[in-house]
């Protein structure tokens, strides 16, 4: 069965690659669909185990956590210097393990049978956990470097210079100072670089519209229709407004399970991931230098963050 699917995909991909260059799209060849090795389409049932090439240039959850922890440690030390106790922010709670885990929607029929389209552990109808109060004015000034609501707190425009508890507030306050120490002041705020986000955004859009992926969507749609559901692609199924309920309905659980089953039957994720990876790799090859700089920046901030937490 599995071998059969792989062969079908491979044959189809070969045919598409052969025809695509000379028809349909009038855009320059530089933006034509990148070729993929159609004999090596992997069967993918656990997308979280398959990072895409551009993930090397965005933060992992672990890197994000390391940076966030260092930011908090540095702010806390600075605030203590002014005689203030600064409490940690609420925990993030649910989030995808990585960029591919839910990138293509649901993938595991055992999970969807219980949870529908929402990932297990996501606060679908859960209680908000963000009830921490705002800081008193003087503390807020030390943290942000400004009391002007029009100025971005912690930025270079947040001038500082005020005297609080016998000390002078630094430019950008304790937040700005922590971000300086982590070489992440203003700009991206220590988050993902614009180019890296642009590459992952475009690769998703382009791959979703790619003829090879569209073809596998057609077969997925047919499989879904056999189970009583009519959607153009998995994104449409996942975003059906009918699923806006505090808990998954029986219909949602059936639809999500049909989605996961049909994805496996047609190896939708294998084809989609392979095509998307090809789009990303082409962009990575075009931007080698800038991306190397982005990676260097991430590594440098991680080094500084680990040193800050260790008290060095």
């Amino acid at each position: 069965m599995r071998a059969h699917i792989r062969t079908a995909s491979a044959l189809f991909l070969t045919a598409t690659v052969a025809t695509v260059g000379c028809s349909v799209d009038a855009t320059p060849s530089v933006d034509s669909p990148p070729s993929v090795n159609s004999s090596a389409i992997p069967v993918i049932t656990k997308p979280e185990d398959r990072p895409l090439p551009a993930e090397a240039y965005v933060l992992t959850n672990r890197e994000e956590d390391t940076f966030a922890r260092a930011r908090h440690v540095l702010i806390t030390r600075c605030m203590a210097g002014f005689g203030f106790r600064y409490d940690p922010p609420p925990k993030p709670g649910f989030r995808p393990r990585n960029r591919t885990q839910y990138r293509y929607g649901v993938s595991d029929p055992k999970v969807t049978a219980m949870h529908g389209f929402a990932p297990p552990g996501s606060p679908r109808g859960g209680k908000p956990e963000r009830e921490t109060p705002s800081l008193p004015a003087r503390m807020s000034l030390v943290l942000s470097g400004t009391d002007d609501p029009k100025v971005m707190p912690g930025s270079v425009e947040a001038k500082g210079g005020q005297r609080i508890n016998g000390r002078t507030v630094p430019n950008g306050g304790c937040f700005g100072r922590a971000m300086d120490a982590l070489k992440a002041r203003d700009g991206d705020g220590g988050g993902d670089a614009e180019l890296a986000r642009r590459i992952t955004a475009r690769s998703f859009d382009r791959s979703r519209r790619d003829p090879r992926v569209q073809e596998v969507f057609t077969r997925w749609s047919r499989c879904m229709r056999d189970r009583g559901f009519s959607y153009a692609d998995p994104v449409a199924a996942s975003n059906d407004p009918a699923w806006r309920t505090p808990t998954p309905s029986a219909t949602e659980r059936r639809a999500a399970t049909a989605d996961a089953v049909c994805k496996r039957q047609e190896n939708v994720i294998g084809v989609w991931w392979t095509v998307e990876a090809a789009y990303q790799q082409r962009e990575i090859d075009r931007h080698r230098g800038e991306l190397a700089d982005i990676r260097t920046t991430i590594d440098e901030r991680q080094r500084l963050a680990k040193a800050a937490v260790a008290g060095r």
């Binding site: 933060l59 995808p96 960029r99 699923w243």
Partner: peptide
């Protein structure tokens, strides 16, 4: 996508950005 699924743009604390993803 709804329910925190699919790719994302992260916006760090006290940061603003034009969205890409």
């Amino acid at each position: 996508n709804s329910n925190y699924v699919g790719d994302w743009d992260g916006v760090p604390p006290w940061t603003w950005r034009n969205l890409d993803v």
